[in-house]
Design a protein around this nucleic acid. Structure first.
Lengths: 167, 167
DNA sequence: TTAAACTTTCAAAAAATATTGAAAGTTTAT
DNA sequence: ATAAACTTTCAATATTTTTTGAAAGTTTAA
């Protein structure tokens, strides 16, 4: 496999992986492209490379910036805006963990807490609802705490810890 | 909040959470319903409760069984099939970790390995592609190993370990 | 202030995904 | 063998999500 094929394969794979965890294909592909680009890219270059429209590029770049994994960069003396991604994969993982906790886990935990706190009417059904949502609440909270620890630890903590665990 | 409201809220929330990580709404709602149902439910009952068609119910139940988190159950002397979910949340988490590893992580790892093994043509671009995909490969492998450990450990290991870690 | 160079927005179109429902399939009882 | 009771399949339809592209917006330079 030579460079162009490998590049395409990486971008394509990353793109479809993305759609599996809730970010769309274009967004994941833009991220993949920036991830392996040694230099910042302009909107024009991204559109060209991925064959997507200007509007699409603009909106998805914005979302990637909201996720905190892509940044604007200005080249001296140039009007055009350039974009780079977070290149450190540890930092990338940390940022994703942080955002997913905020967007998905925390709202779910809130609902589980509310639901599990209803008072039982004594029926088997309501007992089961309470029991199961309590258990899910506990599980989700544990995971959230874990992810938040990830976010705040120093460089490399994750790999070290995970490797230690699996021994 | 009383029982019916709580139940609806739980099913709805679980449904939209599901769609955020790649399983569809109906599938997640069926799972939620079974999760809090003290008794196994028939297809008829599921259709009725969630207001979805027979075909939809049938297909999604099958998928849930493929994920290993819903089971068929036969009541003595009854022709109809009944369904229950895995009720133990630890086991649920374990099963989901296992399936996600198999379906998403492992194929991605395979591609990352291939791509990161191309030989450089000396250009900055190909150096960067190799460097970044190697780093992602390492990260993804670490996570996969971690998830696989989860899957094979005894009851409760996850919570204990995570709690220990975050101290 | 004007205009060129660029980016963003958003309604419409396209594409992808989920859902329906009726026909086909299966199993069990008689 | 037949029919009743059930489940599965799948082409058609509906819904949701993504993408487009042109108009509106913004910034900079002269």
């Amino acid at each position: 496999m030579e460079f162009e094929e490998a590049k395409t394969k990486f971008i394509t794979t990353w793109g479809s992986l993305g759609s599996l965890w809730g970010i769309n294909k274009a967004m994941a592909q833009i991220h993949a492209l920036l991830m392996i680009s040694p230099e910042p890219l302009s909107m024009e270059e991204i559109m060209e490379e991925l064959q997507i429209s200007r509007g699409n590029t603009s909106m998805n770049l914005r979302q990637l910036m909201d996720w905190g994994i892509v940044f604007k960069e200005n080249k001296m003396g140039e009007r055009k805006e350039y974009f780079t991604s977070e290149k450190d994969v540890q930092e990338l993982a940390r940022q994703i963990a942080k955002e997913r906790s905020r967007r998905e886990l925390q709202p779910t935990i809130k609902v589980l807490k509310e639901v599990s706190n209803i008072k039982t009417d004594g029926s088997k059904k309501s007992e089961e609802l309470i029991k199961q949502t309590k258990a899910l609440h506990e599980l989700a909270s544990t995971m959230d705490t874990f992810m938040n620890k990830l976010v705040h630890k120093e460089q490399n903590w994750m790999t070290k810890t995970l490797l230690k665990l699996i021994k």
